[in-house]
């Protein structure tokens, strides 16, 4: 019943309009671009002209940041309708959203906010994903978050929560390896253990991005998922381990703040591509 389209197992980058000229000047060594759905919800203009052009040559991943799947209140039906219209207009190979909330009541907070992992929130999130998948007529991917606090009431480990959501709804998962690293550092847990338990067979896309390092109230490291730098070395190491287990998976470089010039961003994507190619040679051997 769901559209079975998927991203090709190569690399992509988050599209930034300032790179448009460079991108279309030559065939890029990329297979897809990802855009934030909310930036394409105007009626027309340069955003649609550019996206239409990119879609002629590359696959598209539509990545939502404002649906607020982790809200205890109802989903915004108007926003869901806008997403459906966008999916119909561009027929993206993938639609993904976050395990987070961003709206409450009438207000949109413009951040990915955390939720406790309990039977109550699990039922809520699964219900919302069912609603999204029904409305869009397609399977979606749900992304693991970066968080800075935890909830005393949480009873379910994050990986189990994601596995259960995926099991109940049939949704795929978007594995953000930087978020895994940030999450482990911020909560004193083990990134390798997290990845060992992660249901990698459900992963339809991987995200890689940079983070900033600050400290918390006790002087302990607090990593901010800021997407404003290169991917950190330990994150590359985790990514290599994941790819060794999964084989090639569609991989995105996210760089949203202090956006670099195009060659710098493309070089990051090429570094990921090299890892994917090693993996596919290994699996062919």
């Amino acid at each position: 019943m769901f559209l079975a389209s998927e991203l090709p197992a190569g690399t992509g980058v988050g599209f930034k309009p300032e790179h448009f000229r460079d991108i279309v000047a030559a065939r890029q060594p990329l297979v897809f671009f990802e855009v934030h759905a909310e930036n394409y919800m105007g009626a027309g203009g340069p955003p649609h002209a550019q996206l239409g052009k990119l879609c002629e040559d590359y696959a598209l991943s539509l990545h939502g940041v404002g649906l607020s799947i982790g809200s205890m209140g109802p989903l915004d039906r108007e926003h869901l309708a806008r997403l459906r219209a966008l999916c119909e207009r561009y027929r993206p190979e993938s639609f993904s959203e976050h395990l987070a909330w961003s709206s409450h009541g009438e207000v949109y907070y413009n951040d990915l906010l955390p939720l406790p992992y309990t039977e109550e929130t699990l039922a809520r999130v699964a219900g919302h994903i069912d609603e999204v998948q029904t409305e869009l007529g397609r399977r979606m991917l749900l992304e693991n978050p970066s968080t800075y606090v935890r909830f005393a009431e949480s009873t379910i480990p994050e990986v189990e929560f994601l596995r259960e959501v995926s099991g109940r709804t049939g949704c795929g998962l978007l594995l953000d390896v930087n978020n895994v690293f940030v999450q482990a550092k911020n909560h004193g847990t083990d990134a390798l253990g997290y990845l060992e338990n992660f249901p990698l067979d459900r992963v339809g896309e991987i995200h890689l991005g940079g983070h900033d390092e600050q400290t918390d109230d006790a002087g302990a490291p607090l990593l901010i998922d800021a997407h404003g730098t290169r991917v950190a070395d330990p994150v590359w190491a985790l990514y290599q381990q994941v790819i060794r287990r999964t084989g090639p998976v569609a991989t995105l470089i996210e760089w949203d703040n202090d956006v670099p010039d195009w060659p710098t961003l493309r070089a990051e994507a090429e570094a990921a591509q090299a890892i994917l190619e090693r993996a596919s040679r290994a699996s062919a051997a």
């Binding site: 413009n110 951040d111 906010l113 800075y148 606090v149 909830f151 400290t215 918390d216 901010i224």
Partner: peptide, 29 residues
């Protein structure tokens, strides 16, 4: 009060990250 962290309680600086993200993000908008 529902928020905790493995280091300090209450996690004031950690919660401030969210306050900051929201306000700075919207000011930048």
């Amino acid at each position: 009060g529902a928020l905790v962290s493995h280091t300090a309680s209450p996690p004031a600086k950690r919660f401030a990250v969210y306050r900051n993200n929201v306000v700075v993000g919207l000011v930048n908008a």
